[in-house]
Structure formats: C-alpha cells, structure tokens
Design a binder for these strands. Structure first.
Lengths: 132, 132
DNA sequence: CTGTATCCCTTAAGATACTG
DNA sequence: CAGTATCTTAAGGGATACAG
C-alpha cells in the first residue's frame, strides 16, 4: 500500500497534470470550471444549502434548464450535494461539498474581479474602439 | 470634480456592480473571463512577452483562429498589449498589462485547481456514475 | 416545486485556404 | 510569421410542454 499523504498526492498530481497539454484530462475539467453558470452558482451557494428555486431567484436570468444542468454537472464532479426531502411538493437542497468549498474562493475571486474591474475594462474598450 | 481615490472608486464599483443581476454589465465580462482559452492564454503569458507562435506552441491544440481571437479580445479589454516589430517576417509580441497582471493570479488559480483536484473529481465521477 | 424531454435557433470553434 | 476570410459542424442555451 502507498503511504503517501493526501497533501503529497496533491503535489504529485500538480506535477503530473498540465492543462497546457491537449490530451491532459485537466483540459476538459478546466473547460467545465470556466463556465459562466458555474461562476455564478458556486458563489450563490455561499452561506449554506439553497433550494433550486432560491438559486433561480438569486441568479437572475438563468433558465431552469441551465440551472439544473449546471447543478447536475457540479454534483457529478463532487462539488455539490443534492438532498431531496420527500414532501408535497418535493423540496431539493443543494450544498457545497468539502471539495466544492475548495473551489469556492476561486469562483468568488473571478466574480469579484469582474465586478471590481468593470470600469477599467470599459475604459480600455473605449480606448481600443476609438482607434482608427 | 470628484476627489475620490482609485481605491475608493473600486470599492464603490464593487458595491454597485453585481453579476447576479441579469442586466449588469459584469455578467457579460464574467462570461468572457470564464473562457477556457483565456484561462490558458493568461497563465501562458507568465514570465514576460510571448510571440504568437510561442503561445501556440505552449497551449497545445489551440487553433490559430481561437488564439488570435482570444488575444484580440484580451487586448480590447485592456488585459494584454500587442507589439508589432516591423521586420521580415513580422514579429508580434503579447504581454500582460498591469490590469492583466491583476487578473493573472485568478487565472493561475483556476488552472492550478483543475490540475490539483483532477483525481478527486475523477473519484467523484466514478462514484456518481456507479449509482443505479 | 423540481425535473425531463423536445424543438429550434444562435453562437462557438475546428479546418482550410489565402494575403501582407 | 501573423492574420483574415469562409465554410461547416458541434455545442450552448432559450422556450415550451409535460411528469413525479
């Protein structure tokens, strides 16, 4: 049996996986993580479990289809748990897993970056578009 | 004239912009930032200016079209600069702007997260798919 | 309330060929 | 080498209707 710790395994993985490589499976994972809806759903799960309808209300404009699809993918990837309460009507809660909590700060960061630097990007665009 | 500092303006912006809102312009910026190629191009620009061909070699599998398109968008948004050296053949270098350097750690983080947690995601998927 | 399935349209993106 | 243009296919995503 291997006697490596989780920490050692993670460091090893970091050395072996490389998203710059086309065939590396992290390329596919990266494309899933870089998803507009993921960057909204994960931050929306701050502060504990949220119902499907609560998430839909929080994330304005998300279609029922995309929300379910995003949550299903996050569940499969081990980032959120889905808990069904058999009542009438049925109640479903979503919550970040420990793994999801590790991704959380990254998603918060990208969302916050957009909100914090929006003006600077606007200025850059105006400047760029003004060129002949 | 306003006498607010850049720092104050940034904090104000953070309060006014909210990507959870459908109509907020940050929603569009967020969708641009959450792009697989952006998450690869920005980290690839670590360590100074890179030529178009160098980036293409570094980011395996990227098509010439997507690389140019991604770089053009990043340039317009003020994240990279494009420097043309009129020689034969022409030489073009791309480099992160100060604004781009602010985004850099976020993009590195998401790429690193994928590489570091790939195994855990694989386990989660296997577990999920094994269910009846 | 939550989720699935279908239809349909828009956009993304790879391949290829051609210009400065 | 760098970039543009065009074509074609694949994927994203909204709307609607229906089921547990």
């Amino acid at each position: 049996m291997a006697t490596t710790t989780a920490q050692q395994r993670r460091e090893q993985a970091k050395r072996e996986y490389d998203a710059f490589l086309d065939a590396c499976p992290t390329r596919e994972l990266l494309s899933r993580l870089t998803d507009k809806w993921v960057a909204l759903v994960v931050p929306a799960l701050a502060g504990g479990p949220q119902r499907h309808s609560e998430l839909a209300a929080r994330i304005a404009g998300v279609s029922q289809k995309m929300l379910t699809q995003t949550l299903r993918t996050l569940e499969r990837d081990g980032l959120v748990t889905r808990t069904v309460t058999a009542s009438v009507p049925v109640r479903v809660d979503y919550e970040l897993t420990p793994l999801g909590h590790e991704l959380f700060p990254v998603m918060i960061a990208i969302k916050a970056w957009a909100e914090t630097h929006m003006d600077q990007v606007f200025e850059a665009r105006a400047h760029f578009d003004a060129k002949p």
